[in-house]
Structure formats: structure tokens, C-alpha cells
Amino acid sequence: MTSDDIEIRHLTKRYRGGAYDRPALQDIDLEIPHRRFVSLIGPSGCGKSTLLRVMAGLTVPDHGRVSLFGRTPREMCRRKAIGLVPQTPALLPWLNVRQNIALPTLVNRRRGTSHESTDDLLRAVGLEDSAHRYPHQLSGGMSQRVAIARALGLRPDVLLMDEPFSALDEFTREALRMQLLELWQRRATTVVFVTHSVHEAVVLSDRIVVMSARPGRIHDVLDVDLPRPREREVVSDSRTHEVEGRVRASLRSAWSSGINPTELVAP
């Protein structure tokens, strides 16, 4: 690995409070190559979101270190180099689509942070005709597209996505997967993507990280040897099903260490 990559070493995190003491992550070692799309998959409560929050600089680990392209998460936050897309879009209800997307740019303009124009972002996520709508006027898929565009606005070096499509119906989810792939293939930003869907992880990713049950550990790391760019045909490609089989086999192996595969959803 080089300073252009993400490197996580011996990362441990516990949540404590009074008599409450719960392990979340234990001795995580992980390498994420620069400009790759990497998915984290595992059962609920295995620490996927906690790991994402540590990488985002929102949670401090008890032990270990995280290096994002040779910098700490805190340094990357100061540089506005991390984009975060949560499970729920968290749009400001009093701002319209254009204003929600433009907000990070407006806040950071005086600092000279490099950014994309709001018009470019609206076009990128197909919301040019909805620029003046407010959050209550948007569907779930449209709201999530606003959140993605907002996260991309400052041209982050790494985009962290925490199950951004989990609340959507499968038709909308499939459309957004393809749109996300198109955006990523144009920008080649490093993406770390949390999901419970084996199919989603395979269609999107260069690499899939299988995590074991609490406390979260790295059980397996699988490379996805499907060609890019990936079009809609990849969904039904026999090679995709073969890779899904490898991932499910890894999950079954992890199950013997405590994972319950019924917690992992099918597409």
C-alpha cells in the first residue's frame, strides 16, 4: 500500500456508558486502494457504520490508526476531503433542491475549497427539472440523489456511504445503483459503501469486505473480477451470479463464527 490508499491498522472500538459496555470493532486491519469502490457487508450490529464513522472522523477509536491517503480523518475533514451519505438524506426542509446541494459549497466558498458547480451536480443526478422543489415534494429516490450530489459538491477524495438505498423499493434502488456507478466511473473517487445486499455489493464493487458478528472483525476480503464499465446487463450476467456465490460462501463460512445469514437481504 502507498500513501495514496486508505490503511486501517489494529482498530478497536467499544461503546461505554455507566454499566453499559459493548464491543463494536476488534482489531480491524483493512486496506482500500485509491479510486476503488469497496463495499462492507455483514449482519446488523457488526460495526459497519461504526467503521465508516471512524473513517469520517466522527468517532474516535479506542486503539489503532486510520490513514486516509497519508492523512488522519481529522486532517481530511479540515481539508473538506470526505463526503458522507447517510442512510437518510437529512435534507434541510426550508431549502429547495438547488439550495440543499449548494449548501456545502456556500459554506466553504470563502475557504477557497475546490468544488463543482450546482448546475453540474443537478445534471449529474438528473434533477435539473426539480431544482426548485422542496424536500417534502420529493420521492425517496430523488431525496437520496440530492444527498449524493451534495456529498460530491466539494469533490471529496473519499465518499463514505452508509446503506444509502436501504429504504427504497427495488426498482428505485436498481436505478440509483446504475446512476451511482455512472457517477463514480466518471469521477473515480474512492468509495466505501455499507450494504446488507450481496447483489448490490457485487454489482457496484471492486472489492467486498465481509465482516463477522459483534465485535466486528474482518472475516474475508473478496475481489470482484467483473469488467468495467458496468452496464445494466451486469445484473443478469452469469459472471455476476458466480461472484455472488463466492460472497455467499464466505458469509456461510463467517456464519460458523457467529454470523446469521438470514440478516443479509437478497436483492
Results as ranks from 00 to 15, higher is better:
38 V>S: 07
135 P>D: 01
5 D>S: 15
197 S>T: 13
50 T>C: 03
39 S>N: 04
64 G>D: 06
150 R>V: 08
138 L>C: 01
260 N>A: 11
182 E>N: 06
171 F>E: 12
196 H>F: 12
212 S>A: 14
13 K>N: 02
20 Y>E: 10
209 V>I: 12
5 D>G: 14
66 V>I: 08
254 A>L: 08
239 R>H: 15
45 G>V: 04
119 D>C: 06
233 E>R: 13
229 P>T: 13
226 L>Q: 12
156 P>I: 10
168 L>E: 07
260 N>V: 11
165 F>W: 12
196 H>W: 13
182 E>M: 01
210 V>E: 00
175 A>P: 00
116 E>V: 11
148 I>M: 10
188 A>S: 15
211 M>L: 15
188 A>C: 13
266 A>V: 06
35 R>I: 02
196 H>N: 08
1 M>H: 15
178 M>Y: 12
241 H>R: 14
113 T>Y: 09
50 T>F: 01
188 A>P: 00
240 T>V: 13
55 M>H: 03
71 R>A: 11
175 A>V: 02
99 Q>M: 09
94 W>M: 10
195 T>Y: 08
92 L>E: 05
17 G>L: 01
22 R>H: 12
41 I>T: 02
185 Q>D: 13
111 R>L: 15
117 S>D: 12
74 R>H: 09
55 M>V: 06
128 E>S: 11
101 I>M: 11
186 R>Y: 03
1 M>F: 14
231 E>N: 10
248 R>E: 05
202 V>Q: 05
57 G>D: 05
88 T>F: 10
111 R>Y: 15
240 T>Y: 13
85 V>D: 01
163 E>D: 12
111 R>N: 09
40 L>M: 03
50 T>V: 03
215 P>W: 05
168 L>R: 06
240 T>F: 10
188 A>I: 01
136 H>K: 13
174 E>N: 05
200 E>T: 07
112 G>V: 03
49 S>T: 15
225 D>M: 08
109 R>E: 14
132 H>I: 00
159 L>F: 08
136 H>A: 06
102 A>D: 15
232 R>H: 04
228 R>D: 04
263 E>F: 13
96 N>W: 08
220 D>V: 07
110 R>Q: 07
242 E>C: 00
62 D>Q: 05
79 R>N: 09
57 G>L: 00
91 L>C: 13
132 H>V: 05
188 A>V: 08
42 G>A: 09
248 R>I: 08
197 S>I: 05
173 R>A: 01
237 D>P: 13
112 G>N: 02
89 P>F: 06
215 P>F: 06
43 P>Y: 09
261 P>Q: 10
105 T>R: 15
59 T>N: 02
71 R>P: 00
238 S>R: 14
42 G>M: 00
54 V>K: 00
105 T>I: 15
82 I>A: 01
135 P>N: 02
93 P>Q: 08
15 Y>A: 05
57 G>T: 00
169 D>W: 05
265 V>T: 14
118 T>F: 04
140 G>S: 07
244 E>L: 11
241 H>K: 11
68 L>M: 04
187 R>F: 10
